[in-house]
Simulated scan of single mutants.
Amino acid sequence: MSKPIPDKAEIALEYPDKFYAGTFAHSSRFEAHLEPSGLSLTLERPGPEDVRKSIHMHLNFGLLAAILHEIAASIASIPDDDIAHREQLRDAVAELHQALNAH
């Protein structure tokens, strides 16, 4: 079930001869869930055909784990006084940690 995007996502897809970029904000929706081999992520901007867009990604668990390690290594880039974002990340990681330990 998709949910409203609480913040904003920006994506860019670059090919040798083409470049695609898009923003997904509060009017957009997302869905994220685990599948047997990794994370499935969908970002969707509803609306008329000229503004409607979506991306669908699948990250295998090994890549997802590597991304989480990179995030942890770069956490210092979030300013100490950005308490709201630090708390959002801390709460989400705590919930993930608890869910992983429950099974």
Rank of each mutant, 00 (worst) to 15 (best):
L96S: 07
L96P: 01
I67P: 00
S77L: 12
S2Y: 06
S2P: 09
L89I: 10
R86W: 05
A76H: 15
D82C: 02
Y15I: 00
F30C: 05
A84Y: 02
F61G: 13
Q88E: 08
P6A: 11
A32E: 07
A73D: 12
I71W: 13
R52N: 06
L34F: 15
A84T: 03
I5M: 10
F61A: 14
Y20P: 00
F30Q: 03
L43C: 07
E95P: 00
I55F: 06
Y15P: 00
A21C: 05
E44T: 10
I71S: 08
A94N: 10
V93D: 01
R86N: 05
R52T: 07
P36A: 09
M57K: 11
D91V: 12
I55P: 05
K3A: 08
A25W: 03
I67N: 03
E70H: 12
L96R: 06
M1Q: 05
L59P: 07
L13C: 14
S74L: 12
A92N: 09
K8E: 10
R45M: 06
N60M: 05
A65E: 03
K53L: 02
D91C: 07
E70T: 10
K18V: 03
L34V: 14
P46H: 04
A99D: 04
L100S: 01
A65D: 02
H69M: 09
D7M: 10
H85E: 11
L96M: 10
S37M: 11
Q98N: 12
Y15G: 02
F30P: 01
I75S: 13
A94V: 04
E14A: 13
H103R: 13
K18A: 11
Q88W: 04
L59K: 10
H56P: 00
A94G: 04
R45W: 04
H26Y: 12
S2W: 04
E35G: 12
T23V: 14
H97W: 06
K8D: 02
V51W: 02
E70M: 08
A72W: 01
N60V: 08
E31H: 14
I67R: 02
D81P: 00
R90L: 14
P79I: 00
G62Y: 04
A66S: 12
Q98T: 11
A25N: 07
E87G: 00
P4Q: 15
L41W: 13
R29Y: 14
E44D: 13
A72P: 00
I71D: 04
Q88D: 04
H58T: 11
I11C: 03
G38M: 11
L34S: 15
H85Q: 10
N60E: 15
L39H: 06
L100I: 07
H58P: 01
A66P: 01
G47D: 05
P4Y: 13
E70A: 14
G47V: 05
H69T: 08
F19W: 10
P6Q: 08
H56S: 02
G62L: 09
G47T: 09
A21T: 10
H56G: 01
E95Y: 05
R52G: 01
L63C: 03
S37R: 15
A84P: 00
L100N: 01
